[in-house]
Design a protein around this nucleic acid. Sequence first.
DNA 1: CAGTTCCGGAACTGAGTAGTTGCGGAACTG
DNA 2: CAGTTCCGCAACTACTCAGTTCCGGAACTG
Lengths: 201, 201
Amino acid sequence: MPDTPPAVGRKRDHSRDSDILRATLDVLVETSYADLTIEKVATRAGAGRGAIYRRWTSKDDLILAAIACTDRSDLDSDRLPDTGTLRTDLFAMLDPDWLGGTERRLRILTSITAMLSRTPDAATAVTRAIVDPSVAAYRHLIQRAVNRREFPMPADLDALAQVIPSMAAHRALFLQQPVDLAFFASLIDGILLPALANPKT
Amino acid sequence: MPDTPPAVGRKRDHSRDSDILRATLDVLVETSYADLTIEKVATRAGAGRGAIYRRWTSKDDLILAAIACTDRSDLDSDRLPDTGTLRTDLFAMLDPDWLGGTERRLRILTSITAMLSRTPDAATAVTRAIVDPSVAAYRHLIQRAVNRREFPMPADLDALAQVIPSMAAHRALFLQQPVDLAFFASLIDGILLPALANPKT
DNA sequence: CAGTTCCGGAACTGAGTAGTTGCGGAACTG
DNA sequence: CAGTTCCGCAACTACTCAGTTCCGGAACTG
């Protein structure tokens, strides 16, 4: 990426990098992949198209970089809620701030899906930046509950950790229904906790 | 739709309708929404573009009609397996024929996602033609198991019926991993059956 | 048969937009 | 300063493709 920066001439203003990437995500959240044009991103970022093409080789390249920059600091394992019981941990992740982050992630997810079937790299980028951190967060909470003997070790922890993120994505994308607290409650109390309580068939 | 057919002139060959719709789905399975052109569909169906535009007003209209025509007869409730236990019923749905149908549905689903965020009707059409029948099939199997006292009535039957289809879609679309027998087994034995066995937290 | 509508095919129009280039000016280097 | 590379901006090129129109011919009606 560094492209061997020249020793001479005006320095590239790297504060524009993040401005442009943030503008890309904004446009992506507001419209969709197909409706995203470099022109819109440039206008939004108050930049020229040249400045964008100087940094990223193509539209897809730009979007991939923007996805990779998604802010997912709220999913860091050391910032996860720790209330003593899994159920309250899970609900603690659903306060307004968290839902805001979740909603933004879901919106990016829906906008990006158009790329998925065309650009193989897109799926990797989305998985790494959005899907995996969510799954990892849920896995972390469940594992901790198991460690404190709240539940027995489940037969398939990985599958359980995917329940909430995958069903939330499904609801937002295909069902086009609100991913709200009531929905999360049905996942937690109707699927996740019952399945954990009885790991054997 | 009938468009008041004229009393005079050559009759429209309605066998071409299904040829074109099938060609549309084929192109959709092989490529993606963005790469689908009317030209490709016409060539594939051995038809002229005029014949297509005479039947459907636009590209999206054509695709919506094609989705609505998806063959989902294998999900009819009276064709569902009935082996006596839920677990074997679920696995009976995973023989090669069924997986073939599942895979095709998932491929259509992934190709279609590009339309979802732009055309509201697309989400409705996909939900009605692909998502709902799957969910209904799983709900039917679970309900029958409950009726025969194999399991207690779950707290949230609707949520449970969505587990397998939504997680399969998620795996195909975002994770881009094979939706094979081993994966289904982890859903059935790791989530669905444990959750059913213990409906209370 | 005369008139109509269908058919596949090919040629055409028009819109949208990715990516390029050049301008005037600012920032940096030696 | 002289030369370079950055900046935002605007004009420009090149291409794809949706949707239209017309052709020669086939099928239908009265």
